[in-house]
Write a protein that binds this DNA or RNA. Sequence first.
DNA 1: ACCAATACGTACCGATCGGTAACATTGTCA
DNA 2: TGACAATGTTACCGATCGGTACGTATTGGT
Lengths: 204, 204
Amino acid sequence: MTEDKNIDPSISGQNETPLRAADKILNVARDLFYRQGIRAIGVDEVVRKAGVTKPSLYRSFPSKDELAASYLRRYDEEFWERFDEAVAAHPGDPRAQILAFLSRVAKRSQKPGYRGCGMTNAAVEYPEPEHPARLVSEDNKKELRRRLRAMAAAMGARDADELGDGLLLLIEGAYISAQLFGPGGPSQSVAKNAELLIGASLKG
Amino acid sequence: MTEDKNIDPSISGQNETPLRAADKILNVARDLFYRQGIRAIGVDEVVRKAGVTKPSLYRSFPSKDELAASYLRRYDEEFWERFDEAVAAHPGDPRAQILAFLSRVAKRSQKPGYRGCGMTNAAVEYPEPEHPARLVSEDNKKELRRRLRAMAAAMGARDADELGDGLLLLIEGAYISAQLFGPGGPSQSVAKNAELLIGASLKG
DNA sequence: ACCAATACGTACCGATCGGTAACATTGTCA
DNA sequence: TGACAATGTTACCGATCGGTACGTATTGGT
C-alpha cells in the first residue's frame, strides 16, 4: 500500500497553528480505527501516518486501549451533534425528529466506505466487559436507548419502551447492514420502516 | 485465566471414536471465535485448547483466515437449520414462520454470554472485501435478505422488498443490541416489533 | 509381520505486537 | 539568556503473531 504521510490538513494542521502531536494522533486514529477496525491497526501505523513518533503517543495516551477509548469519546460527541441537529430541526415533534435522523443515517449509509457506527463496531471487537473502549460504547448506547424511549413516549405510543426499543433495533440494523451490503442495502429503507412501525405503535 | 485443556466431549471426542485433530480444532475454534472474536484469538490458543499442535492445524487448514472461514461455513449451516426449523413449524404461513424464528432469537439473546450472530461479527472484524471470512458472511446475509423478501411477498406486503429489508434490520439490530445490552436489552422485543411492522405493511 | 500411508509432535522462524529508556532538539515566554 | 514544556531520535524490550522444516508414532491393508 502506498503511504503518503499525509495531505489532509485536519490531520497535519498545516494551516494556521500546527496541531499538537496528541491531536494529530487522535485525528489519524479516528480515521484508521473507524475504517479498518481498532484491532486491525497497530500503534506503529498510527504514529507513522500521523507523522509523529511512538513516545509522543504514549506521552498523551497511557495505552492503545485508552487511545481507542479517546477515539470513541470523540465519536460520541460527534454522534450527539448529528442527533441533536435532527432534533433541533423539528422542535416539539419527536416523530419528525426520529425520521429526520434516520433519513440522514440512510443517506450516509449509501456512501461507499461507510462503516456503520464506530461504537457498535468497537463493542463487537471488544466483548470483554471492562475494556475501556467498550465502556464508552455501552454508555452511548444506553443513553440512546433512554432518549428513544422518551421520544416514543412523547409521540404517544401505546408501549413507549417497546417502540423505543424497536427504533433502536432498526437503527443498529441499519448501521450493521450498511457495512454488510454496502450501497443498495436494507439500510436505505430504515426511515420508511420506522415510519410504518411508529404508525402501528401510536394510541387510538 | 485457568486453562483446563478440555472437558467437553464435543471438543475432545472422548466418547466413542476419538475425533480427528481437524474436528477438535474446528470445535474449539468455533467456540473461541464466537465468544471472543476471531482477531482476539491466536492460533496457539486454538491448538492448545484443542489439545493438538500447530502443524496439525496447518495440515487441515491453509491459514488462520481459512480456519475462520471454515468456522463460519459451519455457523452458516447451523443458522439455516435454526431458520428452517422455524419455517417447518408453520407450513404455508410465512408470517408465523418469521415470528417463530424471531421469538427464538429473542429468547437466545437473553442468555448471558450471547454474542449475536457470528457472521455479522466477523464482517465487522474484517471489512476488507476479499477476506475469506467476510465472503462467507456476505453470502449468508444475501441469502437471508432474499428469503425474507420472498416471505414478505408471500405474506402479501404492499412493498415486499421494503418489508423484507425492515425485518432484516430488526434481526441484525437484535443480534447487535443483544451483545451491547446483554439480557434485558431491546432484542427481547424484536418479535413484537416485527409483528407490528408486518401488520402495518400488509395490503388492504 | 510387514510396509506404506496417514496422523501427529518438537522445535524453530522472522515479523509484528504494545510499550519504554535515555537523550537530543526545538519553540516559547520571561 | 535562561528555563521549561513539548516533541523528536534511536534503540531497545519481552511477548505474541501466523506459519513451517523435519522427524516420529500410529494405523490399516495384505
